[in-house]
Every structure is written in structure tokens, then in C-alpha cells.
Amino acid sequence: MVRGKSDKIDAGRIAKYAFLHQEQANLWIPSREIIKSLKSLLSQRARLIKAKLILITPIEELAGLGLKKNLATLKRSFDPHWQR
């Protein structure tokens, strides 16, 4: 802990630290557009998988209970997307 804190003192300490360690600094390089695109697509895929699981779980629970009529109706509502 350091006594005598203020915005002006803190700014001076940060500037001194940056000056003393400038050789160790790495410049920030923004991600390439293709990397941003891939991250976005992977996030969308994860959301879709989560949504699919939310929808499939009740269907699988009905299958476990042996309610064949309800199960067939629900499976038809997913066709042709009913695949794993």
C-alpha cells in the first residue's frame, strides 16, 4: 500500500512504470477478420446446440415414460431436423 493517493499521483506512477518497462511492452494487434468471423460462427453454433438440447430433453423424457403417441407427434414437429 502506498500513502498519498490521488488521480494526479496515480497517473504519474503509471507513466513512470510504463516508461521503465517500455522495452517489455507488446503492441496490441487486432484480430484478423476471418478470426472474428469464426468466433462469431462458433458462438452461434453453441447457442443453437443449447437450444436444440432444451427442445430435445422433453422428447427424450417422454420416450423414457413410454408415451409413444406424444413422442411421435413431437418427433414429427422436428422433421427433417430430427437428427443427432
Results as ranks from 00 to 15, higher is better:
K16I: 10
R84Q: 13
I56Y: 01
K52S: 12
E61Y: 07
E23T: 13
N70Q: 09
K5E: 07
A72T: 04
I49F: 04
L41E: 15
Q24C: 03
R13I: 10
Q44D: 06
K39C: 01
F78N: 01
K36F: 05
G4W: 05
Q83W: 11
S37Q: 10
S43R: 11
R45G: 04
G12P: 02
K5G: 08
A46M: 01
K50H: 03
K68F: 01
S37G: 05
K75H: 00
R45Q: 11
A15Y: 02
L62G: 02
V2W: 07
G64I: 06
K36T: 07
R45F: 05
L38D: 02
T57P: 07
Q44W: 00
P58T: 07
F78Y: 06
L74E: 09
K68A: 14
A25V: 08
L41P: 00
L38V: 09
K75T: 02
I14F: 10
I56V: 06
I34H: 01
F19H: 10
T73N: 09
Q22L: 11
K8H: 12
P80W: 00
Q22N: 14
L20S: 08
P30R: 05
I29W: 03
E23W: 06
W28Q: 02
P58W: 02
K5T: 06
I14T: 12
R47T: 07
N70K: 05
I35V: 12
A15F: 04
A11N: 04
R84A: 13
E23P: 05
K39D: 02
R76I: 02
R47M: 08
K50A: 09
M1E: 11
K36S: 11
Q83S: 15
M1A: 13
A11H: 02
E60K: 14
I14L: 14
G66Q: 07
I49Q: 08
R3K: 11
D79P: 00
S77I: 03
I59K: 03
L48A: 12
D7C: 13
T57A: 15
L38T: 07
L65M: 12
S31H: 00
K69D: 15
L48S: 07
R45M: 11
A25K: 12
I29Q: 11
R3C: 09
